[in-house]
Design a protein around this nucleic acid. Structure first.
Length: 897
RNA sequence: GGGCGGGUAGCUCAGCGGGAGAGCAUCGGCCUUACAAGCCGGGGGUCACAGGUUCAAACCCUGUUCCGCCUACCA
């Protein structure tokens, strides 16, 4: 891009269309995203939360990755060795469902293909349609090191997964066993506890009579049990009561006849039974309920599995076999009613578990699965956060993290699907020995038999995600990446996967790397619609980032997300917000046009004046002072993950200080013919603009790069230019005070003009009376500036002796009075009304302040500077009040005459 | 049942001990040669309610109430 500083190069409005692609391509081609390994520099590293390979960019991804990109761009500009490792997740269940669905639409199932062929089909799908989200992340501007992109199923990561599994098994931290797990009848697989969502549902509690077996009946005919799932009675193997419950004490040990199936089941005593609930007697279905399973273990009861993988009743349910679970429920109730065994039916709310992928109601089911022992891994992970080796931001999540880590249960990691990391375990068909190994074993090490069968289950996708921070850096090899960039600096993710992912990475990172996987974890909020509801396709309230990026530009979307990313609060997003920030991007664009127009130059960089502070105008010293402060604020905010603070500070500064005031103040100097003044103004105008662009760049990379390239001087790329630093020598309190006062005078004149209904273009005369030498000097030196900003004919300074003009609108400031003489224009009654209003307000303030100052406690206990402030305040009020009263008298005199 | 967060301008939210703020919306006036996707100006709030601590409370404490979310094996 040539450095032609010509406004002709910039159209009137920002058209982001080709700009975004052009710069992204150039950044990539020049390898600017590639990790840096310069010795002697600090490092900054992140791994991306890998999106599902089936995924499409949604607004949550857009937020998550915008925040990451802001940080990494900031750190890269600030001189760090940066790496941002991207990649995707193989998403076992989700991906398998996608591919199966395609097959189903062709009337085939995965079983028609068989395991190997099916997996091949998934890979084919992945190559052709998967990873679309990667392209979308590029569209978002993400500066990931794409040369290091990983996939959880790629060769290296698969090797890491195998290594982790084998080591954990050898250490006794992975085991296999028969337990109750959550079974999804739709996905045909086990799920981990946290993969089950609980949905509050209106259900019923059915009270069923279980008759005592005939020969054991004595005083009692039956026991009534209460259940929300009557169909599971078909798998009952006992009824349990509390051992101390007097109602049932004499029944323990007797037999019941299980209705409908007429099977004998015993009454057992178990302390887990809550006598207060229901009837105090519980039906025990060990194969389909966790509690019942525990009771059965203690009481030595058998388990009867009554469901198949679809949650359809199997042959154990005899006459009910082949029925779906809900169909079976209806039939069971009808049949019980017929036999007079249904005592009553109550409405009852309960939380049913559903699969987090497909929302199907899960079925607790006894089966043989692989588990990770959680407690030994959780303990160091818990401690690392307590010791602040990993800092959670916002810190309020620590409590939740602690809670989860201390109540954590073993993690079921086996899944009965095909797409995923197949568990590296083999069973000897001859002696039953289980062999876990990195390589496929040739023969059983115990009996030597060569007939071995590999475990058909695959691992939970989160198992491979848990090692992402080091597997992506090359583990188990000792790579330079691993050495340079682990532990990663920050993980940015959404709080809803704190348990699924963050906690498990903590466990695995500490266990295998001996150090935490990240120094900071920044947990951002969820994006909701404007009513605070979760966005979902079914509700139709989704904001699609791709659509709005196309409509408003990527920069506008990014800036909006950053500006709304306040810690600890959900983001309610509406499209209008994005539109607002598009206007802002356009404002920057137009400011650039102005700046370039006034540089009127195709020359090289502007030289910095020898001693800027010595001859600059107050407006110039003021804007440089503000720039320096803002730079400090932005840096601090980014360092503390206050993205919204940084974005809003920049917005406010650029628009409402630089554009609204500084550029307006600079116009006369820029367009005038005093060379010195012009040079100074040009230098300041350009310097502040240049610094602003760089401060903005992490937020809005495209427009800033485009504009920066138009600025004069030799230019590389803004994304690798230094991030501005606070310059203390630019701080200038005196200049800030002057400009603050200019603003006050200007605003008050504009206000009066507007309220008087005077056309803004009318070249009126304004007179000003100073009540102090300081005020006089101020007016004298700044009258040109005031003139420029208000657009008046002249600002005349009055001497104290002069009479106040009659029939003039009057503005009373602290030690300045301003008159707009407009005979006939001024409504004296209206003026009096306004003055009285202001008088009342002042009186109220004075009374309030006086009360404070009369309070001995206040005088003795409040800090000295606060007391002084109150004295100053009342002083100021009184001076102003005097003038108001005096002016009122003048007006009243006019009215009387 | 337990935990967390929140009720501040019409809307979305900052502020979290010392004179109530922003953006958007709204109303009025301006095509002022960077920008009408703009400029200038205005109106609008017992900071959920009730107590308490303090010289001083939107801000700290207690209680009440309403709204979110997370968590939980009472069948």
């Amino acid at each position: 891009m040539p450095n032609e500083a010509s406004i002709n190069a910039l159209p009137k409005a920002y058209d982001f269309g080709d700009v975004e692609h052009r710069w992204y391509r150039e950044w990539t081609e020049k390898g600017l995203f590639t990790a840096r390994f310069d010795p002697g520099r600090p490092y900054f590293s992140m791994v991306i939360p890998p999106p599902n390979v089936t995924g499409v960019l949604h607004i949550g991804h857009a937020l998550n990755n915008t925040l990451q990109d802001i940080l990494v761009r900031y750190k890269r500009m600030d001189g760090y060795n940066t790496i941002w490792v991207p990649g995707t997740d193989h998403a076992g269940i989700a991906t398998q469902i996608v591919v199966e669905r395609r097959m189903n639409s062709e009337g085939r199932s995965r079983h028609d293909f068989g395991r190997e062929k099916f997996i091949q089909k998934v890979w084919e799908w992945k190559e052709s349609s998967g990873g679309r989200i990667i392209e979308q992340l590029k569209g978002l501007g993400c500066s990931c090191d794409w040369s290091r992109e990983r996939f959880t199923m790629d060769e290296g990561l698969s090797r890491a997964v195998k290594e982790v599994f084998v080591r954990l098994y050898e250490e006794g931290l992975i085991y296999r066993g028969n337990y109750i797990i959550n079974w999804c009848p739709r996905c045909h697989t086990a799920l981990a506890d946290i993969e089950v969502e609980h949905k509050q549902t209106e259900g019923q509690l059915w009270y069923i009579r279980y008759p005592l077996a005939e020969e054991t009946r004595q005083d009692t005919e039956f026991i009534t049990v209460a259940t929300t799932r009557p169909e599971t009675m078909l798998g009952d193997t006992a009824v349990a009561v509390h051992p101390e419950d007097p109602r049932y004490k004499n029944l323990v040990g007797r037999d019941l006849m299980l209705p409908l199936l007429n099977r004998r089941i015993p009454v057992v005593a178990d302390a887990a039974v809550e006598p207060e609930f229901g009837t105090g007697a519980v039906k025990v279905t060990p194969a389909h309920d966790l509690n019942d399973f525990e009771i059965a273990k203690r009481q030595g009861l058998q388990s009867i599995n009554i469901f198949d993988e679809n949650a359809t009743l199997n042959e154990s349910a005899s006459q009910y076999a082949g029925l779906d679970r809900y169909e079976a429920r209806k039939r069971v109730i009808i049949d019980l009613k017929k036999q007079g065994l249904l005592e009553k039916e109550e409405a009852y709310d309960l939380a049913v578990g559903v699969c987090y992928r497909c929302k199907t109601v899960v079925e607790p089911r006894l089966s043989k699965q692989w588990f990770v022992k959680a407690a030994p891994l959780a303990e160091p992970a818990l401690k690392a956060v307590k010791d602040k080796r990993t800092i959670l931001v916002p810190a309020s999540w620590e409590r939740t993290y602690d809670e989860w880590m201390t109540t954590i249960r073993d993690w079921c990691i086996s899944r009965q699907i095909w797409w995923g990391h197949r568990i590296p375990a083999w069973t000897c068909l001859s002696c039953g020995e289980v062999i876990v190994s990195r390589e496929e074993p040739k023969a059983c090490p115990k009996c030597g038999n060569t007939a071995l069968e590999q475990e058909s289950d695959v691992l939970d996708t989160w198992f491979s995600s848990a090692i992402w921070p080091f597997s992506t850096l090359g583990w188990p090899d000792k790579t330079p990446e691993l050495k340079t960039f682990y532990p990663t600096s920050v993980l940015i993710t959404s709080f809803d996967i704190l348990f699924f992912w963050v906690a498990r990475m903590m466990m695995m990172g500490l266990h295998f790397m001996g150090d935490v996987p990240f120094r900071h974890v920044y947990l951002h909020a969820l994006i909701r619609d404007i009513e605070g509801k979760k966005m979902s396709k079914s509700k139709g309230n989704v904001i699609d980032p791709l659509t709005i990026m196309e409509k408003y530009g990527t920069d506008a979307v990014r800036f909006t997300l950053a500006a709304f990313a306040a810690q600890g609060r959900d983001i309610k997003l509406a499209e209008e917000r994005i539109e607002g920030y598009r206007h802002f991007v356009n404002k920057i664009w137009n400011a650039a046009r102005f700046v370039l127009l006034n540089l009127k130059t195709s020359q090289g960089a502007l030289a910095e004046p020898a001693e800027p502070e010595s001859f600059h105008d107050p407006s110039e010293r003021w804007i440089l002072s503000r720039l320096s402060q803002v730079t400090g604020t932005v840096r601090k905010a980014l360092d503390e993950f206050d993205f919204d603070v940084a974005a809003k500070e920049l917005y406010q500064f650029f628009w409402h200080e630089y554009c609204d005031w500084y550029l307006e103040l600079a116009k006369p100097a820029l367009t005038g013919d005093e060379t010195d003044r012009q040079d100074a103004a040009r230098w300041v105008t350009l310097t502040v603009f240049d610094h602003s662009l760089r401060l903005f760049h992490p937020f809005i990379p495209f427009v800033t790069e485009e504009l920066w390239q138009h600025l004069p001087g030799q230019r590389d790329h803004i994304m690798v230019s230094p991030f501005p630093k606070q310059i203390d020598s630019w701080t200038d309190v005196a200049a800030e005070d002057i400009i603050k006062q200019v603003m006050e005078v200007v605003s008050s004149i504009r206000n009066a003009r507007s309220e008087l209904g005077i056309h803004p273009g009318a070249k009126i005369i304004v007179m000003a009376l100073a009540h102090s030498d300081k005020a006089y000097d101020f007016l004298n030196s700044q009258k040109k500036a005031i003139n420029t900003l208000v657009g008046i004919k002249t600002l005349d300074l009055m001497s104290k002796e002069e009479l106040r003009p009659e029939g003039a609108a009057t503005i009373i400031l602290e030690d300045i009075e301003i008159f707009i003489p407009l005979e006939g224009f001024v409504d004296i009654d209206e003026e009096l009304r306004k003055l009285t209003k202001e008088e009342d307000k002042l009186n109220k303030e004075i009374i309030k302040t006086e009360a404070k100052l009369k309070n001995e406690h206040f005088l003795s206990r409040a800090p000295q500077e606060i007391v002084q402030k109150e004295f100053d305040k009342i002083n100021k009020f009184q001076i102003k009040l005097e003038k108001i009263v005096s002016h009122k008298e003048t007006l009243q005199a006019i009215l009387r005459s």
